[in-house]
């Protein structure tokens, strides 16, 4: 049941990401709700379910993106796998650590996608490239506590 509700939340986050989130742009940058849910799923559920949620979030994002290959799906699965492995090694039970983790994951994700984009022959001014890879991780990390709290209470609810 909890998994089903979480699945619904990922679905809702996806819909919000392509509609209402545009009102909350800061310097034309919007946060990535998908990656927040990938991190939460990886910290909350076992590996199998974390990968399933990441796969769903990745496919959802790629369907709305431009491009013939599901780069977000592949990267979301990779981040999810690495976070689950990392959470087995060290304890991530603190809001600051979780925000730090989101910051790193979003930064790496943007860096990968951005570099692929640039090396595919697209012209992106350096200022805008840097703005995306620095501002989006910070913005997304700041939003994490707002999303994590209700998700945590949902998970521990009887």
């Amino acid at each position: 049941m909890k998994k089903f509700i979480f699945f619904l939340f990922v679905f809702l986050a996806g819909l919000l990401q392509v509609t209402i989130i545009n009102y909350f742009r800061v310097l034309t940058i919007k946060p990535c709700l998908f990656l927040i849910f990938v991190v939460i799923a990886s910290l909350t559920f076992e590996l199998k379910w974390a990968l399933i949620f990441s796969l769903f979030a990745g496919i959802f994002k790629d369907i709305f993106c431009i491009g013939a290959f599901g780069i977000n799906t592949a990267l979301f699965l990779l981040w999810s796998f690495l976070i689950v492995r990392l959470s087995r090694e060290i304890s991530i039970e603190n809001n600051v650590l979780r925000c730090g983790l989101v910051l790193i994951v979003v930064f790496l994700h943007d860096l990968f996608v951005g570099l692929i984009y640039v090396y595919s022959g697209n012209y992106v001014p350096l200022g805008i490239f840097l703005r995306i890879i620095t501002l989006q991780p910070i913005y997304t990390a700041l939003i994490l506590p707002l999303v994590f709290k209700p998700m945590k209470s949902l998970y521990y609810a009887k």
Binding site: Q17, V18, K30, K61, F64, C65, I66, D110, V113, I132
Partner: peptide
């Protein structure tokens, strides 16, 4: 317009 690009690396609408 019913949807916009979910990421910052492209500009598109549905």
């Amino acid at each position: 317009v019913i949807g916009q690009s979910p990421d910052n690396w492209s500009s598109s609408v549905i």
